[in-house]
Simulated assay, not measured.
Amino acid sequence: MPNHPDVPIDPSNAAQSEAWGGEQGEFWAERAERFDEGVAAYHDRFLEAAGIGPAARVLDVGCGSGQVTRDAARRAAEGWAHGVDLSAPLVESARRVARREGVSNASFERADAQVHPFPTVDLLLSRHGAMFFGAPREAFAHLGRVLAPGGGMALLTWQPARLNPWMGGFRSALSGGREGAPPAEGPGPLSMSDPGSVRTLLESAGFERVRLEDWREPMYFGRDAADACRFVTGQFAGLLAELDVAERDLARQRLLELLAEHESERGVLFESAAWLVRAKRP
């Protein structure tokens, strides 16, 4: 797959591009393995459900540090997998790991999947990367045109916040209750949490046979409460930056207590729920 030197960004995705191109993207790139560990219980199951054929041409949307792309490429040994993300730090990290692991049929580029001129593919994948489009109907209509006739799509998206207590719990602990789970409206982790809205969105974008499957797996956040606290406070550094020193110490203590309640022999685990979303191009 060629690398395109010019990267067109749709105006509706400009804020996401700026955020993921800066400190947020660097934080995720530096801790790529930890983020992959967090959703490890979903990973192999997701790849199996996607039905990746040995000669498949795969596009991984919002690929992050590239774990799904690399493992899809391994399954598509006679084809290829291409990962795209708005974050330059994550894309560079993905390339480094693919070279190190010798996955020669996996490639990566920084691109806005909402508008980028991709070649035809057989399968679209996204593990928690499809919820951040500024104009989701336009994005999925564009991606549908990228799919070969009869091609498939498999997405993993989060279910509502009440089934993912870590989403609101961390923000509430760090803000002293002033913040809760992120909104379901607009780009964000909950934008594809309502099944009716997901069906309407994908059908209006030209997909058919839209199916959602309820998946529930534990989310991993660290070896113990102290380890998880360091990770989570880094992830939500923006909330702490708004506090003075005394408030910051209290916020960390509240978070530490919450995390300690979820310690187990396998580390700090929280309940989570995702949708496996599958659809076809006519």
Rank of each mutant, 00 (worst) to 15 (best):
E261W: 01
G25F: 09
V91I: 15
P282Q: 11
V68M: 05
S264W: 12
L276G: 07
L47W: 09
G79D: 06
K280N: 14
S272K: 06
A135E: 15
L190P: 09
L276Y: 13
V103H: 11
T69Q: 06
W28P: 01
A50Q: 03
I52W: 14
L258I: 01
G150K: 04
L276V: 06
G151R: 01
L240T: 02
A49S: 10
G180L: 11
P5H: 14
L86D: 12
L90R: 13
F118N: 07
G83P: 07
S175C: 03
F140K: 03
L90F: 03
W166N: 12
A173M: 00
A19R: 15
S126E: 12
W166A: 14
T69D: 05
V91T: 06
E261S: 12
R223H: 12
S126W: 04
A106R: 01
Q235I: 00
A141T: 14
E185R: 13
G21R: 03
A226D: 15
Y220I: 02
Q235N: 14
G62D: 10
R162L: 12
R216N: 04
E261M: 13
G238N: 12
H43W: 11
E23H: 13
D112P: 00
V97Y: 04
N164P: 05
L155Q: 08
E213H: 03
D224C: 02
A161N: 05
G38F: 02
L123H: 09
A161R: 00
F108N: 03
D214R: 15
D112C: 00
G169E: 05
L190I: 10
Q253H: 07
W275P: 01
E247T: 04
G150F: 07
G168T: 04
E217F: 03
N105G: 06
D214G: 01
D85L: 07
E92G: 02
G186A: 14
E138A: 15
L47G: 08
M131L: 11
C229D: 11
D85E: 13
R110A: 14
F35W: 13
T200L: 13
N13E: 05
Q67S: 10
A98K: 08
P5G: 05
R199F: 09
T233S: 00
